[in-house]
Design a protein around this nucleic acid. Sequence first.
DNA 1: CCGGGGTTTTCTGCATTCATTTTTCGGATC
DNA 2: GATCCGAAAAATGAATGCAGAAAACCCCGG
Lengths: 212, 212
Amino acid sequence: MTAHTLHDRLVAGIRELILRGELTDGARIPEAALCTRFTVSRTPLREALKALASEGLVTLRPNRGAVVAPLDAPGLAQVFEAKEALERFIGLHAATRADADDLAALEGLHADLAAARDAGTYSEVNAAFHDRLAAAARNAPVQQMYAALQVQVRRARHAINHDPRRMQASLAEHEGIMAALRIRAPLDLAERLARHNAATARAFLAQFDGRA
Amino acid sequence: MTAHTLHDRLVAGIRELILRGELTDGARIPEAALCTRFTVSRTPLREALKALASEGLVTLRPNRGAVVAPLDAPGLAQVFEAKEALERFIGLHAATRADADDLAALEGLHADLAAARDAGTYSEVNAAFHDRLAAAARNAPVQQMYAALQVQVRRARHAINHDPRRMQASLAEHEGIMAALRIRAPLDLAERLARHNAATARAFLAQFDGRA
DNA sequence: CCGGGGTTTTCTGCATTCATTTTTCGGATC
DNA sequence: GATCCGAAAAATGAATGCAGAAAACCCCGG
């Protein structure tokens, strides 16, 4: 966690604060408070905020401070829609490009996922699994874009209640994903990932529509 | 162009310097020089560099300054590969979601493209056309990711010689793209955009392989 | 003529400080 | 009692200053 540069540490730290829900949606981000929190001066902190703004996690209002970028239902729907395009890409290429290490790691994560009890660890392992799969597609820009979208989804997770039945269905979908990956079936894997994404989107948006 | 905040002005300004080729690939970016160039102090300039780093245009080496992010042939190939995924998405959705304003603007840009004489204006109008098409897909994350990838491509443009025959072929492809758009044919538009992207990628990479 | 070591110089990273804008709070007025 | 206005307080935007690291330079030895 503690990177060599303050900048990296701050970017990761603030992102984590938002992901963990300590900084809630639309909340103001007072520079002074975070400075004392991380024991740094405002200069590096402000640099980190600019970077996170470029990443889409925070919104900078000139002369009026930074807020956690609000994410409403239409915005989240767009995130899932965009993610589908990347999921298809990842499925298509990860099926052929994943090496032995990737496969081993994914099998391990898949086992962890099946063993996950509470929704929190399930989400965490799930994110790790999909990130690893994205890495297996061997395309740096896609991997980076995918990670950014995943962050948005993970952020929204705090605003919803997880349905245990959805967890079961998700796990079943993951079984199919692993099966397609094991036999290296690109089209099948792409299709399964796209549908998995769509199903997750439905589950999220059903909960999310009520609020925001 | 000149935004109200110093930050935006600097980000746009430095990005422009890189796109125009004034800051060449892999070149060090001395903070002091840019400070005098833009008549600002180092603080906002450094913030801008962090933002551009998060955007992928510059690389920050701790304690060793910033450099224009080097882009080699494999990297550029990945950019085009990633762009194909987004092109398909854009074609699929722009075909159904483009409104009258979009269509009018795209017809206008298409006419400008056909009228373009030199490679410079062609590239410029071409980028504007594709950005407008991306906007017509009505998906903010995709639009932003697409813009970032376009920047990488535009940056590589300085390193290659444009083949006039490629310009002709490109224009012909654009005719097909407009035709698919006019009749709102999603699958056809997606396929044409993907092939257009692939053809452009081949033209770029053929030139690019020799160097870098 | 080339390479190595130590010093000087430059440059980056961060803290501090100053100016300007926004927000807040108090009081007067209706 | 609510509202509007103004001053105080706080927060942001930007410049400057300072410590430490990297790079450049110079001098010396081989």
